[in-house]
Design a binder for these strands. Structure first.
Lengths: 299, 299
DNA sequence: CGTGCATTATCATTATTTGTGATGATACCT
DNA sequence: AGGTATCATCACAAATAATGATAATGCACG
């Protein structure tokens, strides 16, 4: 059964005659006849009573229902991809926990207000997992630590962060190696971009690898840090946002370590769905047009 | 966009590779490639990431939604006409008022219990209107006075009726011409099969055409008859059913006039929808296999 | 960093289907 | 009956789908 045949069938029903339908569809009457005959032989019933005007048979009346529904879906699909209609459907976003907490509350509402027909689906995960999901086609876009990812993924830097060392007690400066070796760190699970920074920091200070507790939630991490369980490395913006909830103290990290960029990663532009294109092109996403820092990136 | 292309697209997504999809659909891999490429060029986006296994792009994820919905509708339609599935959809029935009142309450519930997925739509009208609606494809079947209708409609006798003269006062026999000429008759509107009988009765008795009031409802007719407004000609079964509500008296009509058959009229069997076929073939409809009486018929 | 295995792309070819235009058959209206 | 509309049929042209062979590509494993 061809969509085309159903389209012709509908035209016949609407216009009341084979020849009128042919004219309406810019084809010839014998072609209309052929399509209807094929439909009828495929379905095993007569669907049109050849009279003037043509009349639907009982079976034809039922076919019309299907024809309309399939035709509507078909043109909706075409319109979705080609026509200039509103973006609709689902937009599957992934984000690091910190970005979701600090930046997305300014991004998503603006997008949703502009394109209310798009249903948003946000998942938080460490950067590495997000990039995997993106590659496997289970996400449309992901907010991750900027860096070159090698394969076909495109990255656009959107937020600049300053990582700080977070502690429950006041700190003067980054603790010395001896002190660090007696401290534990709290971080997201494996794959989190910031976690890398912890290792580099320890190495730079000449301290041995410290124990790293993996907690899956920002609240858990900051709550435990403020209770003195250990230190954490997080974007300053995140800590600032949580400061009114937990007693937290921060100390700056060396410039080389502290500056990280968050980027939005997507597949090539020629694969973008309409909602994704709308998301990428709207004013809600800043565009820091600078080369992304390859350091600390990927994994 | 071909349904076939969407089917192939789905197979690729399900099976994870072009070649596996080809095998599953009993075709060759180059054909799968061609269909996907065509789809992509029609829609203007890449829908599949050629990897192992293949991955949906953002746009492909959206297309999959449409493909599934269209595919489901398509197979539902095919199954509806060819497959042995349950009858579903609408069954549009027409009936004379009297048949609807007396016989259908024994027919429709049985059918509906057996095929609950069919939604019934019953309209009451005079026979002639029903046949017109049937011809124009606005009804699937109609209960009408049996008779030959000339064109392609098929008739199957289902109920035998005995017409009686109904009066509000006791009657010994059919009134004489003199009395009839002073009486008015109550009947359904033009096109009612029973109304014809009134004219024939008057003619046979040698009485002049009496005034005929047209009332669109059985209750109205019988209520007025019992109040002495005039006489009516109706099936005895109908009168019997209403007797407990209105004080009614009946008198037999001459055999030639009284015997009428109610038939179910449909278009040719090769046009029947599945619900109609189920309705015609079930045990709820009696089949009086006798030649229908052409007298008094049609109009 | 090749080698081998699996994948998809390309291409020439055939088969099938769709679309065309002319003609004939049929009904309907006057 | 004649005129006018309708749809069916047919032979043919054009377009498209399917095929099979081969080339190009990507990926894993040593």
């Amino acid at each position: 059964m061809l969509i085309r045949s159903l389209e012709i069938f509908q035209a016949v029903v609407d216009s009341g005659s084979f020849s009128a339908a042919a004219e309406r569809l810019h084809t010839v009457q014998s072609n209309v006849t052929a399509h209807i005959k094929k439909l009828e032989s495929e379905l095993g019933v007569r669907v049109l009573e050849r009279r003037n005007p043509v009349a639907l048979t009982s079976a034809g009346h039922q076919l019309l229902g299907y024809a309309r529904r399939i035709g509507d879906l078909h043109s909706e699909a075409l319109n979705h991809f080609k026509g200039g209609g509103e973006p609709t459907g689902e937009l599957r976003l992934g984000s690091m926990e910190t970005t979701a907490a600090v930046h997305l509350p300014r991004v998503l509402p603006a997008f949703s207000r502009r394109w209310p027909a798009v249903s948003l689906n946000l998942r938080t995960s460490p950067s590495a997992c997000l990039l995997d999901e993106l590659r496997e086609g289970r996400l449309d876009a992901a907010f991750v630590i900027a860096g070159n990812v090698g394969d076909g993924l495109a990255m656009r830097p959107v937020f600049r962060e300053r990582l700080v060392l977070v502690s429950g007690r006041p700190l003067e400066s980054v603790p010395c190696a001896a002190e660090l070796s007696r401290t534990s760190f709290l971080s997201f699970r494996q794959g989190c971009g910031y976690r890398q920074t912890v290792s580099v920091l320890l190495a730079e200070q000449g301290a041995p690898p410290a124990p790293v507790h993996e907690l899956g939630s920002l609240d858990a991490i900051l709550g435990c840090v403020s209770a003195g369980m250990g230190l954490a490395v997080l974007p300053e913006s995140t800590v600032r946002q949580y400061r009114h909830r937990y007693p937290l103290h921060t100390v700056a990290l060396p410039e080389a370590l502290s500056a990280v960029t968050t980027a939005i990663a997507t597949a090539g532009e020629e694969t973008w769905s309409q909602p994704l294109r709308a998301f990428m092109e709207g004013p809600w996403l800043p565009d820091l047009n600078e080369p992304s820092r390859p350091a600390l990136a990927s994994v």
